[in-house]
Simulated scan of single mutants.
Amino acid sequence: MNKFYGTGIAIVTPFLADGQVDYDGLKTLINYLIDGGVEYIVSLGTTGESATLSQDEKKKVLAFTAEVVNGRINLVAGIAGNNTAEVVEQVKAFDIPGYNAILSASPQYNKPTQEGIYQHYKAIAQNAKLPVILYNVPSRTGSNVSADTTVRLARDFKNIIGIKEASGNFDQINQIMRDKPQDFLMISGDDPISLPMIALGAVGVISVVGNALPRQTSDVIRKCLNHDFKGAEKGHFDLIDITRLCFVESSPAGVKTALKQLGICGDTVRLPLVQVSEYTAGQIIKEIQKFTA
């Protein structure tokens, strides 16, 4: 389970100006993150714009990422959707070496009941060759995975090893932390509240802003995990404004603007996402310059 303690990065998928996957940019970004001290990478999560990639592109990006990482850090593959049967087939077929777990967001759009969510994850767990991390992000999916459902899944399926919890609901987080099995991992899915979540027992974060600032993000998380919350305060507060700016318009357009400013990769996103406004880009650039001055 220690594989997923610390800082995970929900890595962006860089695109060329014509919209094709930028594999050189992806390689540069992966090495930048590893040099920045992160513990693992999540490929093709929401931040990776997985909804706009074809199945063939997804396979190529996942394989290329594993090839570049080459065992240097841990890897998680994002496999999700709102058609349970299709997700199960993708999970069953997944055989790319180098991955340590699957991250699967709760179904979007359908708005299933809690029993529907449970049965969806049950089908995934019963067919997955790798450990499964749940992902609860109600702001995107339109439905919440309740604390009771999370705990029920954690108790019923040993290969469901944790949750990326991005509800921002501390009543729910408290209940999960109180009732979950001891070895079930709570992972923050919200950069700004990782510190208080770790204070409650979370084991780290799957970060977006860490794409641009991996060293700063992982330093804060490492201090928190060492119970040095006072020492983590400055870094935590330093990241507030850049994190807010990365989400003020659509994500990952904001963090891609930061990555372009850092010379890591371009800021192209695929429709229906668009690049951030000129005003927001200027604000992001100013904030990033504070970290590079």
Rank of each mutant, 00 (worst) to 15 (best):
P97C: 07
L75A: 14
N136H: 07
R72G: 04
K129M: 01
I102M: 09
L103C: 07
V132P: 00
A77G: 10
I79P: 00
A77E: 07
N70R: 14
N110T: 09
S106F: 08
D95C: 11
N82C: 15
A80M: 14
I79K: 02
S104T: 11
I133R: 06
P131R: 06
K129R: 10
N74P: 02
E115T: 10
P112D: 03
F94H: 07
I79G: 02
I73P: 00
Y135S: 05
L103A: 09
G78F: 00
N100S: 15
N127C: 06
E89N: 14
K111T: 11
I96N: 02
A125L: 06
L134D: 00
V76F: 00
I73T: 12
Y99M: 13
V88N: 12
V69H: 07
P112A: 05
I102A: 07
Y118K: 09
A123C: 08
P107I: 06
P107N: 08
E86M: 14
Q90N: 15
S106W: 03
K122E: 15
L130I: 05
G98D: 05
Y135F: 04
A128R: 06
K129H: 09
N127P: 01
G116L: 07
K122Y: 08
Q108V: 05
N136C: 05
Q114V: 04
A101V: 11
H120C: 03
Q126V: 04
A85N: 13
N74W: 12
I73V: 15
E115Q: 13
N100Y: 10
G81C: 13
V87M: 11
N100L: 09
E86D: 15
G98K: 08
A80Q: 13
N83C: 14
S106L: 12
I124D: 00
Y109F: 12
Q90C: 11
A77T: 11
V132G: 02
S106N: 12
P131N: 08
Q114F: 02
G81S: 12
G81H: 11
N70G: 11
P107Q: 07
P112Q: 06
I79M: 10
P131A: 05
F94A: 07
P112C: 03
P131Y: 04
Y118F: 13
I96Q: 03
S104C: 12
A85L: 15
V91E: 01
G116K: 10
I96C: 04
I117S: 08
Q126N: 14
Q119L: 11
N70S: 14
L103N: 00
V76D: 00
Q90R: 15
V91W: 01
K122W: 08
